[in-house]
Amino acid sequence: MTLALDSVRRGQRAKVLPGFRLTLGITLAWLSAIVLVPMFALVSRAAGVGFDGMIASATDARVLASFRITFGASLIAATINLVFGTMLAWALVRWRFPGRRLLDGFVDLPFALPTAVAGIALTTLWAKRGMLGQIADGYGLQIAFAPPGIAIALVFIGLPFVVRTVQPVLEELEPEIEEAAATLGASRLQTIARVVLPELLPALLTGFALAFARAVGEYGSVIFIAGNRPGQTEIVPLLIVTKLEQYDYAGAAALAVLMLLVSFVMLLAINLLQRWAKKRHGN
């Protein structure tokens, strides 16, 4: 609370605007009630397990397998989104074609569509007798209820991230930079590889990290398509739910804290990336 009191003094000295005390009060109270206290409950419950208990639960074979599949599928999905998201952003910014605005809006569908809805649609589509599952089955590939299905769900939910981080940077990119490269004798390919992509790099990495972080925590769309076989297609969030249903609160909390640590590291990485980009471009 020293933060708040100190702030009130500093805030009021500077401004003639009213309501600082009131709005900061509401903000802190609401933030504490909804976010801070419950998060603290989680961390303290996990701390009850102790450090050894955390290690033990993290190195359990089933847990390890679930981390492997979660991170593996998330990495693949984020990579696919990186490649196609960049192309999509490029087309949306640089090309003029009928339906461009429609496509631009459509890219946000995974943000707006409830995950459970996406989950059942993707499962139906990729199940053995589904429209696309049939084709894959013809090649002897099982998609739904197997690891590729998880990756597909994660591609879906992470799709907008790369597009939406790269698009504004691409829009702001001065066309003169590419013209300069062209007058200096660079081919189009050289210009893209040596001038455009390096300029986009921070945005590309940020989009990738955001898509990855989102994929790691995803639950709704994956549980339908995954098949959820322990050790094979069981993701970490599902394992948390399973532990909770078995009233293993401490185990669930320990896993949750591990996941939080991962998101925290991702968040830090994204922040550092953005700081790096700002510093390099000097604005």
Partner: peptide, 11 residues
């Protein structure tokens, strides 16, 4: 940045 499952779990 928190998994939805954790958002439920904390409560």
């Amino acid at each position: 940045s928190v998994s939805p499952v954790i958002s439920g779990l904390i409560f």
